[in-house]
């Protein structure tokens, strides 16, 4: 399993990270989507501490009347943190599109919704001069459980090096309401969906396998010997491999001696 984190220390590091990154870009404000789930709640709590609640906006973007409890929890969280929040129903734009281009695929619809939310977040970030804060955790990033250019899109991601089980620890330390901490994690792609049902295993087991593969660089065989089912381990390995494209910028065909993404190499924080 990933080790227990020292949550106060992690908070210290991540608060400095958010403040530093935005400060270097001359930006004081952050914006993020509030789903009513754990990850966005933790990110909002960190952002409120780093930037001051008055400089954080949470956008709640339900599809029509789906997931009313999540909408309520997201609103309660925003009020509790004292951050600004706004609710925008994405149903009109989503329905308009699918009326013209119908599909029966739930995943396709879910991805489209994630990208609509992304485009609204980025538009609002331009309106108020704020940075889009990402909420993807390490578990999701490693298995590619997210929509590319959708919920994975952001300017900075404070939580991308914390496994889901570690995000839970941080959430408890940050006093994220129990209503949010206790619910089953869901991508909210369709009613009744839960991450663990869709991925096919509990986050504890998933994190244990990922920790062994990634941090401890164990082989498949060793993970199985440690007590995991071979089919599950194989599936996790496959998910990691097949989602590498989600963790990188698009590949550029190399032609010149010095190409973007290959050997034109500058830091993000250039001159900052």
């Amino acid at each position: 399993m990933p080790p227990k984190i020292n949550a106060p220390f992690v908070e210290k590091v991540l608060v400095r990270f958010i403040r530093d990154k935005l400060g270097k870009c001359g930006c004081k404000k952050g914006i993020l989507g509030l789903s009513g789930g754990l990850d966005s709640a933790v990110c909002a709590a960190l952002a409120a501490r780093a930037l001051g609640p008055q400089n954080v906006t949470g956008l709640i973007m339900p599809y029509g009347r789906a997931f009313p409890e999540d909408v309520r929890d997201a609103g309660n969280l925003a009020r509790r943190l004292g951050i600004r929040h706004e609710t925008i129903d994405i149903a009109p734009q989503v329905d308009l599109y699918f009326a013209a281009h119908p599909t029966t695929s739930r995943v396709q619809r879910g991805n489209k919704m994630a990208r609509e939310r992304m485009s609204i977040l980025y538009d609002h970030s331009a309106r108020e001069g704020s940075f889009v804060l990402g909420t993807s955790n390490k578990t999701e990033l490693l298995i590619g459980y997210g929509t590319i250019h959708g919920d994975m899109a952001c300017a900075v991601n404070p939580m991308g090096d914390l496994y889901k089980t570690q995000v839970r620890e941080l959430a408890a330390h940050l006093r994220v309401p129990a209503a949010i901490r206790r619910k089953s994690p869901t991508a909210g792609l369709w009613p009744g969906q839960t991450d663990e049902a869709e991925i096919g295993l509990a986050y504890e087991e998933l994190d244990d396998i990922l920790y062994g593969l990634v941090e401890e660089r164990k082989r498949r065989k060793e993970i199985i010997e440690a007590g995991h089912r071979p089919a599950v381990v194989d599936r996790v390995v496959r998910m990691i491999r097949n989602s590498e494209f989600k963790r990188k910028l698009p590949l550029i065909a190399k032609l010149s001696p010095r190409s973007v993404g290959h050997d034109f190499l500058y830091p993000y924080d250039w001159g900052k």
Binding site: V13, R16, F17, D20, K21, P267, Y268, D269
Partner: peptide, 8 residues
């Protein structure tokens, strides 16, 4: 101290 490219 300080942070560069996400590294503290």
């Amino acid at each position: 101290v300080g942070i560069e490219d996400g590294v503290t």
